[in-house]
């Protein structure tokens, strides 16, 4: 139940962890742009992106398998898109005489698989090196201009970080309730879709009630620690910009330039 590698923070004291989360979010967006810039079918661009991932992983002192594992979460989706490409795309020449698989299909399948994988790898680098709280801080910072139109940026960020904080707790709780109801003969494996949906009621209601109870208690705990919204509030973790952020920005810019350059040079065209 707890094996959700995608979006799990991996604590460490690396240079990447220490980057400004707002910058990291922006750079992740830039990275995704770079991935999208890789034109079909200039695969060397992906190699550049992958090198970028490997380098960042190394600097961040992350175990490489943790990063790669993030693809597993969307493996089904990747395979599905690839299969669709292989069967639907009829460009290029058939693989064998009268065959239904075409070279164009294979190449574009590979292209799609690489594109999705690269994006997921980049996104998981962000979430592995940035704690949910920092992410919320970064988003808060980036949303700051919205304060001008009275958008409650601080509250929004707080809600986000609390939601993130409670995900593992609620997953554990769900697991426990499911087990308790299974012990009372509840059947969650029924082939009948209607029955299965109905079987969720004895799980959802206790979960809902306990979430309300938690929310109540959490509100008390926050109040008793003097919470009163964003007014007169200081921040312990101020987002600061350092040399590291500049280097990271230049490095990512380099990636984009590299991808554009590679696009123009070595293409596998069909």
């Amino acid at each position: 139940m707890r094996d959700v590698s995608f979006g799990q923070y991996y604590p460490s004291f690396s240079a990447v962890h220490k980057l400004n989360p707002a910058i990291k979010i922006l750079l992740s967006i830039a990275y995704i742009v770079a991935v999208f810039l890789v034109q079909p079918f200039y695969f060397l661009g992906f190699l550049a992106c992958f090198t970028y991932i490997v380098l960042v992983t190394a600097v961040a002192k992350l175990p490489f398998f943790r990063v790669i594992k993030s693809i597993r979460a969307i493996l089904f989706f990747v395979v599905l898109s690839a299969v669709i490409q292989v069967f639907v795309n009829k460009t290029g020449s058939p693989l064998w005489e009268g065959g239904f698989i075409y070279t164009g299909g294979l190449i574009s399948a590979a292209y799609i698989v690489l594109r999705i994988s690269m994006i997921v790898l980049g996104a998981s680098l962000l979430t592995l090196t940035t704690s949910p709280v920092e992410l919320a801080d970064g988003i808060e910072f980036l949303l700051y201009p919205l304060k001008l139109i009275k958008f409650p940026v601080h509250e929004f960020a707080l809600i986000m970080s609390i939601a993130l904080r409670f995900i593992p707790t609620l997953l554990d709780e769900t697991d426990r309730i499911i087990k308790a109801q299974k012990a009372r003969g509840a059947d969650f494996e029924s082939k009948n879709l209607f029955k299965r949906a109905k079987a969720m009621i004895p799980v959802l209601i206790p979960l809902l009630i306990s979430s309300f109870r938690r929310a109540d208690e959490l509100a008390d705990a926050m109040d008793s620690r003097c919470y009163s919204g964003s007014k007169n509030r200081t921040k312990y973790k101020k987002l600061t910009f350092g040399w590291g952020d500049l280097i990271a920005a230049l490095f990512t810019a380099g990636l984009i330039v590299g991808v554009v350059f590679l696009n123009g040079v070595y293409g596998v065209t069909v």
């Binding site: 923070y9 709280v133 993130l164 938690r214 959490l218 973790k237």
Partner: peptide, 11 residues
């Protein structure tokens, strides 16, 4: 479980 607000101890 219902009184810790942040995902990191110091926060």
């Amino acid at each position: 479980d219902n009184q810790l607000i942040a995902s990191i101890v110091e926060d």
